[in-house]
Each structure stands twice: as C-alpha cells, then as structure tokens.
Design a protein around this nucleic acid. Sequence first.
DNA 1: TTTAAAGTAGACAGGTCTGTCTACTTGGTA
DNA 2: TACCAAGTAGACAGACCTGTCTACTTTAAA
Lengths: 182, 182
Amino acid sequence: MKTQTNPSARDRILTTAHDLFYQQGIRATGIDKIIAQSQVAKVTFYRHFPSKNDLVLTFLEYRHQLWIGWFKQALERHGNTIQALVPTLSEWFNSKEYRGCAFLNSVGELADELAEVKQITRNHKQDMMDAVSDLLPSSADNDEFLNVLHIAIEGAIIRAQYDSSPSQALKGLNSLIDTGFK
Amino acid sequence: MKTQTNPSARDRILTTAHDLFYQQGIRATGIDKIIAQSQVAKVTFYRHFPSKNDLVLTFLEYRHQLWIGWFKQALERHGNTIQALVPTLSEWFNSKEYRGCAFLNSVGELADELAEVKQITRNHKQDMMDAVSDLLPSSADNDEFLNVLHIAIEGAIIRAQYDSSPSQALKGLNSLIDTGFK
DNA sequence: TTTAAAGTAGACAGGTCTGTCTACTTGGTA
DNA sequence: TACCAAGTAGACAGACCTGTCTACTTTAAA
C-alpha cells in the first residue's frame, strides 16, 4: 500500500493534460507541450499512455470523476432541492477558467475520429441527469420535466460559453424551474 | 455584370471548405486538402484568402447565410407558427450530414485562438432567435418565454449531436412548446 | 492586339506533430 | 548486493502544416 507522496509522473501528466485540453482544446494541445509542462521524459509519457488517444480517453474519465464529484457536492451545499441547480451552475459558469463542457467540446472536435467520445459523453450526461433527478420528489413521474430540463441545462452550458455573461443562460433556466413547468 | 457560369475558383474553395470544415472540423482540415478537393492552385487559394483564418471567417459568414436562409424557408414551409419549430429542426437533425451547429463547434475549437468567433456566434444566434420570435404573436411580451426557448433550442441542437437519435431532443422541445410554458 | 488579371503545377522553407530509440540514473525489493 | 522497474535527457524519423515562390498559360477587356 502506498501512502500519499509527491504526485507520480502519471498524475502529473494527467492533471497537466486536463488543464491544457480543457483550456486550449485537444487538437490544439501537442504531446510535447504536455511533456514539457508536466516535467516528465518522453519515454515515461509513452510508457503510461501508448498514444495520444489513450491519454484523451483517460482525460475524459478523469474529468468525469472530477466534475460529477464537484456537481453533487455543490448541489448539496445549495440545499439539495431543484432550487439548488441554478446557484450550482452559476458557480461553474462564473469561474474564470470556464470554457464550456469538456465533453461537448470533445464531441465537436473529435466526433468522427475518436468514436468512443460520443458514448462517453452520453454516460457523463446520464450521470449528470441522475443527480438532477435526485433533487425531485421521487413519487411523481418526472420524465417529461426531466427531459425538458436536460435540454435546457445543455443549452445554458453552451450559452454561458459564448455569451459575454452567463446571466441570460441562468435566467432562462431559472424561469423554467420557477414556473414549475407541466 | 456577370451571368451565371461555372463556379469560380473562389466559390469552389468556399463550398469545399464549408463541407470539410463542417464535416471534419476546422483544425482537422488542412489547407492542402481544401486546395486539392476544390481543384485550385495554391497561389489562387492564397490570392483569395491570405491566411487560413481569413477563410475560416468567410466560411462562417457563408454558413450563416446558408443556414438562416434554410431555417426561415423551412419554418414557412411548416406553417410559420411556433408549431413549425420542431418539424423544422427535425429535418435538420435527421439529415445524414448533421454534425451539430457549425458555430458552436467553432467556439469550442477556436475560442481563444480566433477571438471573433464568439461575437460571430452571438450574431448568428440573435438572427436565429429573431426568426423564432417572428413566429409568436407580437403583442404579448414574450421575452421570458423566448429566453427559455433559446436555451432549449441550443440544448436540442447539442443533444441531437451526441445522442444516437434526435428523438429525445425533439420530444423535450415539443413538451416545452406544447405546455405553452408561462 | 496588347496587356493585365487570374488561372495552372508544383518545389520549397520552416515549423509542429506523433511516436521511436539510445544511453544513462535512481530507488526499492528479492 | 544484484536486479529490475521506472525515471531522466534528448536526438531522430516521417508525416503534415501554413505560407512563399518560380515559371508558365488562359482569358477578357482596353
């Protein structure tokens, strides 16, 4: 068993890749840049990740854990009802590193070159919507509302990425939830 | 004045770039591929578009005209009421070349490298929502509904891109419109 | 008919990309 | 202590990228 030491080479690669891939995009980020910034030798890199695609897939796994973990914890912090959704997303949208959803960006960038990305994205969104579903009273049949909520959340994520401010996106989501819909 | 002849070199470049950029992404598409496929000499290409970025911006303009033209015409074909929205988007989502919104894809891919892209996208979406607004009775104050509709449409566009079928996305949008909201 | 703009093919420069390889060092375990 | 796994630095191959350049041809207007 291993107690916590300095981050291993693999961890350094992964966190560096995460930051660069999310911030600048996957195609825009060369292996060499990741190697330099994570202070690792090239051989070491390729021992852990035989190809860039392997790294990309591991990055998406890592990102999923990170994001879902944060999301659930933030929803809880905000009271764990459906009213928690907007303040939670507001935190994300207003963070200065915000560059949209890493999964949606990857689908746009790699769609047909790295086929797995779409399925990974579907799984990610499923987990996201499961967390949202947990905010609602379980008795009612919420399927229709959840489906509307799903597209509205996706739209808010995207608008917050290209608008100069996330306020309209948040306001739209808020209207939908406040009126209760259905 | 020029009567219609065979497509000019510039037009061939632009339509080829449109297809490749939309289908494979901008970074994934090299100038050489566009030149080969549009059957044009390299000098000719660079006479019309001094740099790849110039071509990208012209591509977005061209795409905007093309898409908005199609969108308005399709809404009209479907009766020009708010009920026309879902069947119109359904046509798009089910077309076999569908790869999401070219503008959203560009924002994800180029966000910080080509700053203009975000503003261009905002203008594009403004025009899209203006067309949607025209479907509603003008007297009512629809701002809130339109804002919800905006994020829902964006979300539907995105979901239709990563889901294996666009049906859930369309269903969500339909629910929102049918219940009338507000 | 001359001239200039717009077209052709394709070599080339200089950079970046992914991935391989050599040669050496360090640290923990058998 | 001897060994092996994991680390280091960095050269190199081969592909692809954007953009420039030379040299020649076609076309349309003055």
